[in-house]
Every structure is written in C-alpha cells, then in structure tokens.
Write a protein that binds this DNA or RNA. Structure first.
Length: 465
RNA sequence: UCCUCAUUAGCUCAGUUGGUUAGAGCACCUGACUGUUAAUCAGGGGGUCCUAGGUUCAAGUCCUAGAUGAGGAGCCA
C-alpha cells in the first residue's frame, strides 16, 4: 500500500462499500463527543461534505484524541458503517488513526464557526480549508474544464498567446513593465532617457493586457481558436470587480460576423452555467444557502432565457425616456456608465442584454466600421449583478480602413506592422470576444467580491502569498 | 484616484450625554456528560480600544493627521 492509497470522502459518502475496511485521509473540521466516544468531521476537499469518524476514547485515549482537533491532518483506517445519526448516511468506525500534522488549537486561525471573507483574505494560505473557499475552488476548476471542453467539442484550437509583450498598442489599460535593467542605475541615452536597447529584449516590454491581437493572427490561419490565460492591468482600480492579475478567455473566429459572434457568446455562457448546475450541485447549494439565497434561481433563469439584443442607439433612447435622474447624462455619443447598464439589465429588461453598434469614438481601433460611418460592430454582454461580462466585436479586416483608424487615433503604426499585414495578405472577415474568467465566477458562485474567486488575488497594494 | 463608512479579546461585534475596574457570543483551557451534528452544561484565562498629536478635571467616546479595510464611483474584463 503506497502513501496515496485512500478512498476519497466523496466516494465514501456514496455508500458503496458498507462493511468493508477503508482508509480515509483529510483535515479535521470539528471534533466533539463525550468521555466514551469522539466524533471527528473529516474533509479532504473532494466534496463540500465531511465524513464522520467515530473513535472510542477507550481505544485511542483522551490525550491522543485531544491532538486530533480542528485543523489537524490525519489518516484513518476503519470500517465503513451505516450511521445511526440522522445527518449522514455512513460513517467510519476507526480502528487506527495516524496523525500526519497537528494544529495547535490556541494559534490555528480557522475555527469551526464561520469567518468573515475579509479575514479569510488575510489568511489566503489557509482559506482553501474552509467550506466556502473549497466550494469556490471546485467550481473554478469545473468552469475552466468546461471552457476547454466547450471549445474542443466545437473544433476550436487552444492558442497560447505571449504573456510578455513588446507592444502596448491594444489600449486596454495601464501595463506592468518587465525589465532586467537595474532600476536604481539604468543605462541612459544622451538625452537622459532610459536606454531600453540595453534591456533584455532590446526594447521596452510589458505584461500582456490581452491575447486578442495574437489570437486574431491564429484565427486567420486555423479559423477557430481561443486563448485562456492570465492578463495584467496596472490600473489603480479598487473595486470588488477588478484585479491586477486575472484570467481571460478570448475566442477568435474567422468567417464569423457580429451576429455569429453574439450567438457564440450567448451559447457559450449558457453552456457554462448549465455545466455548473449539473456538475457542481452540492457546492452551489451550499453557496446558495450560505451567501446568496437567489443564486440557483438566477442561474437557472439565465441558462434558459433568451438574451435581449439591441443597438446602443436604441438603448440610449430607452435611457432618455426612463424616469430616472442620472448621475451621468445620457445622450447619443456618451459612454454608458454602470448606472445605465444596471437599469437596462435589472430594471428594464430583467435579463442579460447584448448591446451592439456603439459610436466608434468610445471603442477600440480594431472594431469594424458600420456603413453609417459613425458606429462600429461592437458587442457588450451585460449581466445582472456583474455588469459587463463580455466585450467583443467584429474586427476591421479592411486594410485601408484599419490603417486609417490607426492614424486617426495616433497609435504608433510600427508597433503593429505584423497585425496590419494580416489585412494585406489574405484578409478575412472575423470576430471574437473576451470573457473575464473571474467575472464569470462571480456570477456562477454568487460571491460578491472578485478577490474571493481567485486563490491569490493581486490588487493595488496587495501582493502577499 | 475621488466620495462615504469602519477599525475595541484569536474571530464576530456591543459599549448610552465624555465619568468607577471596557462587555457579550464563539474560539481557547479545566471539568461534567453512554452516539454527537456549528453537541450541550459549569468554571477559568485572555485587551497597545489601529497609530501619532490635540481638547478636557476626565477620552474607547470629541477634534486633526496618518495607516489599514470595506462599500460606491471612475477605468475595464
């Protein structure tokens, strides 16, 4: 028998092998009992549920059992039996217990009672051992897996786009610099500016804010691709919806117009939500009970309802007619603020909304210009509670049009020569979008703060662990 | 970055109009209990009231500045 030999608690609880000897390993959640018998709730992270270990005090001794308290890690060999208690189908009558690691009860920070999410963030090294956080992590895994499954089943190829980039032309926010220069004494040019020709790459380099531009290069060869990787924004954003380091999914598809793009986005989101409802039932029920009483109802609703689709122009008309005093004025050409988006999703339509055809001035250079010359084929998917969960567009594939737009916005053309060349050689209509993975998880788990759906959040002034 | 609020025991939080020795629940320790279910019951230990100034006979409480956290806004995914 090797060290890894054990039955996972999720399998023990399926009640398959009653009467047989089993080995369970895990971390003690609580211990209670009397002078004759101790009950140990054991969890190994395979499920939200614990297995109850029953240990006779006469066999194991009071002093030993005292060490098997909250937080300790143990190996238990015993018989799986039907439980006389009402709250669990089976339990393990312990024959032997090996203490892998004790946890001093006076200093172990996790109690059997609940903690605030703020406190748990301060002990991110231990919070995976809580019910809430282990549930979130299992759902996070399930969603990552479902994303790959969805695209793989549809014949999309997973493209690894670079994390270090030499271009900052995408315009999606402030970038983190990557350098090997001595920041206390960098080489300088005659004009006093830092000489990045002497840096590792011979030029300035940054952490990527998006894999989209490279994804487009791949789509214009492999037709259907997606990226799924970390992205970095050095914005000083302090909100429950922003991270400095987050994961993004970016499908990019040749021969898709904006309608196809919207169909893909809606189908994709519904698939993921249905996958969670089907595969993460116990964890979602726990989160529903613990944090968000409307979670399951909301997930079921969004999974089946048809998203509302309308143009930016129509949305502005609705907002202008609305009997609401806006903090930010609404007029054609103004960017929509979260109060406007929330009104459309939560009050007016009461379901997810896809807004399209925004004024070109408030959108990025790569979006395809409409025939009206004023709007671009952009699409934002707005969700209840979250706001913008997806942003995407049909891309400008016309060489003349995209160089004109780049010049208008005074984006340095020489940094994008490779991107522009795809429009020169065998260009094709294509579309894509970006989905923030943690924003998806906020919606699926019902958690209120994005720092609680990623194991180790990076935010301004916070890079512990 | 801006606005608002918060910071008191390991955790969650009370603390009245500025007034004696700062409290509770949980956790922890000791004991009781023949199968518990966030076990229960009894007892015990535990405090730089975020920090630095200030006002006052007297400050956890009022004022100023700062630190940290949270919510809202902006930026966005």
């Amino acid at each position: 028998m090797t060290l890894k030999s054990r039955t996972k608690i999720v399998d023990l609880l399926k009640k398959g092998e009653v009467g047989t000897e089993v080995v369970a390993k895990g971390w003690v959640r609580t211990r209670r009992g009397n002078k004759n018998v101790a009950f140990i709730a054991l969890n190994d992270g395979s499920t939200i549920h614990n297995i109850q270990i029953v240990a006779d005090v006469a066999v194991f001794g009071d002093d030993f059992l005292k060490e098997v308290g909250t937080g300790a890690c143990i190996k238990v060999v015993g018989t799986l039996v039907e439980s006389p208690g009402a709250q669990q189908p089976v339990e393990v009558q312990a024959k032997s217990i090996e203490l892998y690691g004790k946890a001093d009860p006076a200093s172990y920070p996790l109690q059997k009672k609940g903690h605030s999410l703020e406190f748990l963030r301060e002990i991110a090294h231990l919070r995976p051992r809580t019910n809430t956080f282990s549930a979130v992590l299992r759902i996070r895994h399930a969603m990552a897996f479902a994303i790959h499954k969805y695209f793989n089943d549809k014949g999309f190829f997973y493209i690894h786009t670079p994390i270090i980039t030499g271009s900052d032309a995408e315009g999606a926010g402030e970038l983190f610099r990557v350098t090997t220069l001595d920041i206390n004494n960098p080489p300088r040019k005659e004009n006093g500016k830092v000489d990045f020709a002497e840096d590792f790459f011979g030029k300035e380099s940054k952490l990527t804010v998006s894999g989209q531009l490279e994804g487009e290069l791949a789509a214009l060869a492999l037709s259907e691709v997606y990226t799924f990787g970390p992205t970095f924004r050095a914005e000083n954003s302090n909100t429950p919806r922003h991270l400095a380091e987050f994961w993004m999914i970016e499908p990019e598809v040749a021969f898709y117009d904006i309608e196809d793009n919207m169909d893909l986005a809606e189908d994709f989101l519904k698939y993921l939500i249905r996958y969670a409802l089907e595969h993460c039932k116990d964890d979602l029920e726990f989160l529903n009970k613990m944090w968000d009483k409307e979670l399951l109802e909301r997930l079921n609703s969004v999974a089946s309802i048809s998203f509302e689709r309308l143009t930016y122009t129509k949305a502005v008309e609705i907002l202008e007619k609305a009997d609401v005093k806006w903090e930010f004025p609404v007029f054609w050409g103004a960017d929509l603020h979260s109060e406007h988006e929330r009104y459309l999703v939560e009050k007016h339509f009461k379901k997810p909304v896809i807004l399209t055809d925004y004024p070109k001035e408030i959108k990025a250079f790569y979006m395809k210009l409409n025939d009206d010359g004023k709007t671009v084929k952009a699409m934002d998917v707005l969700f209840p509670k979250i706001g913008e969960i997806i942003g995407g567009s049909q891309r400008e594939e016309n060489h003349e049009a995209i160089t004109k737009r780049i010049n208008e916005l005074e984006i340095p053309m020489e940094e994008l020569w490779w991107y522009i060349e795809t429009r020169k050689f065998g260009t094709a209509p294509h579309s894509g979008f970006g989905l923030g993975f943690e924003r998806l998880l906020l919606f699926v788990t019902g958690m209120g703060n994005i720092r609680d759906v990623i194991p180790f959040p990076r935010t301004p002034n916070s890079c512990e662990f």
